[in-house]
Design a protein around this nucleic acid. Structure first.
Lengths: 246, 246
DNA sequence: TCACATTTGTCCGTATGTATC
DNA sequence: AGATACATACGGACAAATGTG
């Protein structure tokens, strides 16, 4: 019976700042450190871990970029535990997009595929609170749309609420991450109330499909929502020829 | 028509190391720096940007974690442009999953839902290279399984190859992240060659389904693969009563 | 408004480890 | 084996920001 390889692997020399950052990370994972908690100052951490301040700073940079902490300077400042992982994921996604590792087409395809699959779970597991949250969202969005105002945040929230209704955190994380990218896209384009209005209509159709337990109707409306959005984005992006580097 | 908020936001004072890292990032985006290119040493960068070495180091940490460079020590070493963005995104996803304490039940449900949806894309887009890669994987796994050896890595790789065959990097990222969590589950349990053997059989069935363009067969086998694995893991976890914190 | 303390941000000098030639 | 070039790491110092009294 062959013993699996990789039992003695951790011999690779981890750099000191990686050691420090992963120790703090572990404390956060274990729940010993919770969002809102204040970490000791850099000098304090340095003496506690018995390393130099520079090492601590590089560890903090890692934790910051990984979305575990934020840092404030000045009196009463310092590192604070705060979960911004989803933001960091969307930042990396937009990097990947700029590197042309990912296209708008691919992201849209992934959204359609994943959210359609999730929708069935959402319809099975949604409770009255979820229904109410969706209804509230639609009311707010409709009010804005009727006044020809933008309702981008509400429209994004609608999809988040759908994922939440599935009662599966894996779905929530995946959907929220992909939505963060979509938001990065749309915020760069000129605002278009017409697109928002269309989306609200599709969301209403999805909602009715859910309430009526009509899976086909819900999925059909969801796909229409995606495709219309993609077409809008593509035509807007095409108009946006005068693109300037920052 | 309401003007969108956040027009005067960019007043925030960017820290020096952020300035440095985003300047280097821009060079990579523009193509002035390509994968394989060697960046100047830390001291060189410090004098060129007219900042201290510590500032450069923190900038390099950011670029490293963002997946733009890797760093080698020693003679002839230094920062090297290298694209590992997609891997870094997967790492962040894994962190996000770990933050929510996800159950085996939830992760299995998510895997079934997501990977089943991806499988259809894989069957549409798989080329001869993908088929060959899957075949190679199966041959290696079978050889090990026949000798009653563990073939966990090969079994995980099989699902990664499926995602890769979809030709959509977003799918690859999601699947790799979910697999990382599954690996965390399995590595905590005692190794069980029987589980591996079963998985290889299911993978073969999936593979044949793909080759025969038989979607139903492939999906059915995929679901069997997941459910058997879940049951195995649950019974193993039940036996493993003496669970201790690390 | 004006100090004042705290903490990050930044720089410098120096020493050590490490990989290549 | 020794020299070289580089990252890694420590300690001290000062500037800048931020909240308190």
């Amino acid at each position: 019976m062959g013993v699996d390889k990789a039992i003695f692997t951790p011999v690779q020399s981890k750099r000191a700042f990686e050691e420090v950052s992963s120790k703090i990370k572990t404390l956060i994972f274990k729940g010993a450190l919770k969002p809102g908690d204040k970490l000791p100052s850099e000098t304090e951490l340095a003496s506690q871990f018995n390393v130099g301040r520079q090492t601590v700073r590089e560890a903090l940079r890692i934790l910051e970029l990984s979305g575990f902490i934020t840092v404030r300077k000045g009196y009463g400042g310092g590192p604070i535990v705060q979960d911004t992982i989803l933001n960091q994921i969307s930042n990396l996604f937009s990097d990947a997009f700029q590197m042309e590792k990912i296209s708008l087409e691919q992201i849209t395809t992934a959204r359609i595929t994943i959210e359609r699959a999730i929708l069935e779970h959402a319809m099975e597991n949604a409770d009255s609170q979820d229904i109410k949250a969706l209804e509230d969202n639609l009311n707010r969005a409709k009010k804005k749309a009727d006044q020809n105002m933008m309702c981008l945040d509400e429209n994004i929230e609608f999809h988040k609420l759908l994922a939440k209704a599935s009662k599966n955190p894996v779905f929530v994380i995946v959907v929220e991450s992909v939505l963060a990218i979509m938001r990065a896209f749309t915020s760069r384009l000129p605002p278009d109330p017409e697109t928002c209005k269309k989306a609200v209509q599709n969301h209403e159709a999805i909602f009715h499909g859910i309430k009526e337990k009509n899976v086909e109707k819900a999925i059909e409306s969801l796909e229409r929502d995606f495709l219309e959005l993609k077409n809008r984005l593509q035509s807007l992006a095409a108009q946006d020829t005068a693109e300037v580097e920052t």
